[in-house]
Amino acid sequence: MKIETRWVHGKCFVSTVEQGHAVITDAPTQFGGTDSAQTPMELMLSAAASCASIDVTSIMAKQRQPLDSCRVIVSAEQAPTPPKVFTKLHFDFELSGSDLTEKAIEKAIEMTFETHCSVSIMIARSGAELSWEYTIVK
């Protein structure tokens, strides 16, 4: 895996992977940026949310529990002083689908955070506390 990051202007950067997919990051105005894109820490949180969502939806499909929708809201707390690493992440999943069972959802989410979601597991191994909950939306 390889990524190239180029400075655009101010505190704005574009990172591009080998396949050509690009992501823009910027800093808030109080840190000299223009607040035009996600900050690197917001991007890390987005990565954790999307990684967990990919895993939950994949595991649910393997359990023959097809989802109609999957939404996750991730709330994070950071250390008060630099480096302001994540100290807590809470994932709140909203799932919908026909005949979903709580047992299958709980198994999918537990597997996600125990063995599959590389991003959240990496954050947890750095000392952050992970928690989760889910709601089945009709």
Rank of each mutant, 00 (worst) to 15 (best):
M1Y: 01
I3N: 00
T5F: 00
R6K: 01
R6A: 00
W7K: 00
V8M: 00
G10Y: 02
C12A: 01
F13Y: 01
V14C: 03
T16D: 01
T16Q: 02
E18V: 05
G20P: 01
A22E: 04
A22I: 05
A22H: 02
V23P: 03
V23T: 08
T25A: 05
T25S: 07
T25Q: 04
T25E: 04
T25P: 03
A27C: 04
P28K: 06
T29P: 03
Q30C: 08
F31P: 02
G32Q: 12
G32P: 09
G33N: 05
T34R: 02
D35H: 03
A37G: 04
T39E: 02
L43H: 07
L43I: 04
M44V: 08
L45R: 06
S46L: 05
A47V: 10
S50M: 11
C51W: 05
C51L: 08
S53P: 09
S53E: 06
I54L: 14
D55H: 03
D55R: 02
S58Y: 11
S58M: 12
A61H: 13
Q65Y: 15
P66M: 10
D68S: 15
S69A: 15
S69W: 10
S69F: 14
C70A: 14
R71I: 13
R71W: 11
V74P: 11
A76F: 12
A76K: 11
E77T: 14
E77P: 13
P80L: 14
T81I: 15
T81Y: 14
T81D: 15
P82L: 15
K84V: 12
V85C: 11
F86P: 13
K88E: 12
L89Q: 09
D92S: 14
D92Q: 13
F93V: 07
F93M: 07
E94H: 13
G97H: 11
S98W: 04
D99P: 03
L100G: 13
K103W: 14
I105T: 14
E106W: 09
E106S: 14
E106F: 09
E106D: 15
K107E: 14
K107W: 15
A108V: 09
E110D: 09
F113A: 02
F113K: 02
C117H: 01
C117K: 01
S118R: 03
S118M: 08
V119W: 09
S120L: 03
M122G: 11
A124R: 03
G127W: 05
G127H: 05
A128T: 06
A128S: 08
L130R: 01
S131T: 06
W132N: 01
I136Q: 09
V137E: 10
V137Q: 10
K138V: 12
